[in-house]
Design a protein around this nucleic acid. Structure first.
Lengths: 172, 172
DNA sequence: ATAATACTTTACAAAAGTGTATTGTTTTAG
DNA sequence: CTAAAACAATACACTTTTGTAAAGTATTAT
């Protein structure tokens, strides 16, 4: 589970336009240079954002992009959904049924339950964060209350590697 | 942002052993058949779980796998971290600096801030959910309070596609 | 002992994701 | 009208992930 490159860079490109403001426009070159991306790559990302209705393009010699709505009216869920789709595929059980015809957990797909719960949890965070809040540098309430725990997270689990092969087959 | 195949299937394999219980063991064949996976693939997943210390292997003719600790003592964060690593790479700004030498947002990396907040938020969910809770089919409190919102999520954003090309370059 | 069973490791092919290159279309400055 | 500037679309190479295949190691029933 991770943030994809398209989501990361696409969000950054959009934030440039959010910082510029509702009416101002920037060219692909300006955005690409600002984020250290190649022009063709930034172009691809902005094309995705345009098709999602998040930015508007102006063609021609004095063209460029501008944000489609007020940054305060665009939430992070809409942005990440446009760039990377949903956290869990709608027809999840169809695709993840292995070699069987249908989901192996038809009676009680507990995996589906917990991952669906996670997806909803994540969405509540994303939908509660607007681009304006990110530009202003004040993450939403939910973020601040759990950031501290994340800081010490990785090391806590990284040194748990061991052989896993036991000497006692009986389990006593 | 999505759950990877290894995370999904790895978790499912581990849940089989969690359902079997602390002392019981299952062979790769049994687990593979139970989840509709090929034996070699299940073998690879269980190997990852073993190296992470989550399961123990018994070799030889009457061998198999069993869960290393009580399912109530294993949380979902540890499992997903073992199978797919952290949500955000520790040296994030080094890798995502584009063509520049250092992160383009050194003064105020607002993207890093909000995504770090998201990672912490997700972790609080995962760390608060044990395998036992999943087996019992009762998602943790955090899941239930936000599941309803997820149900109606996808359709709400899917029909926002438009051309994005405006007829009014001036923006009036 | 030996064969059967089960885990281990490595290698590899197919698919998806990432980023670049190229060519085309649109608009405007002159 | 023409050339320059800027967005649009497609194709392609590269990398990572995914899943399979095959050969190897370890244990035990007989």
């Amino acid at each position: 589970m991770r943030i994809t490159a398209v989501e990361e860079y696409g969000l950054r490109c959009l934030l440039n336009l959010a910082r510029a403001g509702r009416g101002k426009q920037m060219s692909i070159s300006e955005i690409a240079e600002s984020e250290g991306l190649s022009v063709p790559y930034a172009s691809k990302l902005l094309s995705i954002l345009r098709k999602a209705g998040l930015v508007q393009a102006v063609r021609g010699r004095s063209g460029g992009f501008r944000i489609a709505r007020d940054p305060g009216e665009i939430d992070l869920y809409e942005v990440l959904f446009a760039l990377g789709g949903p956290l869990i595929d709608p027809d999840h059980c169809q695709k993840h049924s292995g070699q069987l015809d249908q989901c192996v957990h038809t009676e009680e797909c507990s995996v589906q339950g917990v991952l669906g719960g996670l997806a909803g949890y994540v969405q509540s965070f994303l939908a509660g964060t607007s681009l304006q809040e990110i530009v202003d540098g004040r993450p939403c309430t939910m973020a601040r209350q759990s950031t501290a725990a994340f800081e010490i997270s990785d090391t806590a689990h990284s040194d748990e590697l061991r052989s896993g092969v036991v000497d006692d087959p009986a389990g006593n």
